[in-house]
Each structure stands twice: as C-alpha cells, then as structure tokens.
Design a protein around this nucleic acid. Structure first.
Lengths: 144, 144
DNA sequence: TTGGGTGCAAACTATTTGCATTCGA
DNA sequence: TCGAATGCAAATAGTTTGCACCCAA
C-alpha cells in the first residue's frame, strides 16, 4: 500500500520502476537524480542534489536538476517542503508526515503522523479542495 | 493582554506606541510602513507593502521596506509567513493562528486556533526550544 | 557632532526560460 | 527519424549589501 512502489529504491531496476509508475519516462539524468534523492528518506535542496549527482563526473546540468525536481514533484514522486524562504527542499518521503525545522543549522527532520492529531479544521472555501497540509515545528537552540 | 498594545492601530499615536513598545525607534519611514501593514489584519508581501506605502508620493525606498520589515519581524511586531517559495508574506496578526493558502491565486487567510487542536508533538531535540509552529492548509480550485 | 537611518544602485542567489543540440524509442 | 530531453547561458525575481548622505539628539 506504500505510495512508493518500493521504498528507498536503490537498484537501477527499482528506480526505473518508480519513475515508470508515475508516468515519467526514465532518461539517464532522471535516473541519476532519482537515485540521489530516493535511495533513502531525506530532505535535499536542488543545489545539494546537483552536488550529489555530479559528485564523481559532471553528468547533469543545473537547469536539468531544477527542471527534473520540479517534474518529479508535479508527478508526486517527491514532495516540496517550504520552510525556508531562501530555498526549496525536496523530500523523498511522500507519505503524509510533518516536519521539524532547526532554524540555526537549516536541518529538517520528519515528525511521524502517528503521534500528532490535527482536528477541527474549518470548512474549506467553496470550490476548493485540499492540496496538502503542512505542519512545521520550528525550533532554535536554547540560549545558554 | 493582547500582544498588540492596540490592535490594528490606525492613529499615528497608536503606531508610535506600538513601535516603542517593541523598542523600535520610530522614524518617518518606519511609521509609514507600520501604518500600511498594522492598520488591519492582513498578509502582504514586501512588494505589496512598498506599493502601498508609495501609493501617493514616493516616500520609502525598496531597500528600506525590506530592511524595515525584517526589523519588525525580528522584534516581534509582525510575523513572517513562509508558504510560497517565491516570496515572503508578512502578517500583521501576531497572535498564534494558522493559515489557509489558496495556491491558485496566492491568497492567504487565517485559521483561528479556537477550532484546531494539535496534540502529541514529539519531544524536541535536546538543547532546542520552540520558535513557532506553522500549520498551513493548502487548497486549490476543485477541477470542474 | 555623530551615529543611526535612509536611498540608491549594484550584488547575490535561487530558479526559470529560450533555443540549439542530442538522445532514445 | 523525430519528438522529447538536455545543456548552456541569459533572463528573472526577490532580497541583501555597500556606501555616501542626512537628520535628530
């Protein structure tokens, strides 16, 4: 029942399957990018993905990384996380969950839905439907 | 007990008081900017504030608007709302509340805390404290 | 007088876009 | 082959910064 055909696919075959399952035709660059991001639960900015993908040889351009991440997000393969006005994070975990953001070092971690209850949301405006609900707990270092 | 000395101050005196209450020395531009934003509950981007403030005569520069909004937010007079990767919104309502964001037209509205319950947040990482909790309900037009 | 506040323009950063080239079914 | 995907560089947009000027205490 997972939304990921295989969670944290690592093999090329699993990546190909994950892309195809979303109707994304797999090309070399897309597979490289998917592997970098999907192989484990993580939150990466476009720049971090670019660095990862090009760690060894320069195989993917910056524009392609941005465009591809956008494409993946559109197709529900990954999820955008908007917590920092200076950059978008991409989350390889598309199961519903919330986030904890450490302001000081910009790190982002998951809060599982199990524990958290969110009740009593007001009715939505007419003619609209929910696209998503984000809960972001922002924390900072306790001043010593 | 309101966090605003006077909610939605409109008179120059009330604005001066609100600024002073936060330790912000009131200058002409700061008062203009505060009046534009604080006179009612609203969510404005820096650009919108700039336009409002300079509606009649050009009295404030773009840099000053950005710097001043940042200053106000630092001092807790207003609140940043991060929902859209392309721009930061500033909220004149600093009482705790949540947000409903209409993706299609970029409009933002408040969700009062009365109705919404949020329980069971996990313990925070050691040495950190909560800076804020954002709940953002993203809605889109129902496809006809 | 003197340091904070402001204005302006230039700098910066993340992201998008146009277009020619290349790739893959 | 032929449309889709890519790369590159230039364009864009929001925001920040450097620095000279100005004003109030």
């Amino acid at each position: 029942m997972s939304d990921h055909p295989h969670n944290w696919p690592n093999s090329t075959d699993a990546i190909l399957a994950a892309l195809r399952a979303r109707g994304i035709s797999p090309t070399q660059q897309r597979v490289d990018i998917a592997r970098a991001l999907l192989s484990r639960p993580q939150h990466l900015s476009a720049d971090q993905v670019l660095a990862l993908v090009n760690a060894d040889r320069n195989s993917v351009s910056k524009a392609t990384v941005y465009n591809t991440l956008g494409l993946f997000a559109e197709h529900g393969l990954i999820r955008q996380v908007i917590v920092d006005p200076t950059r978008v994070f991409y989350d390889s975990n598309i199961a519903p969950h919330h986030h904890l953001y450490q302001i000081d070092d910009g790190s982002l971690s998951d809060i599982s839905l199990n524990s958290v209850k969110l009740d009593g949301l007001p009715p939505l405006p007419k003619g609209t439907e929910i696209d998503g609900i984000d809960v972001i707990v922002r924390v900072r270092k306790t001043p010593s």
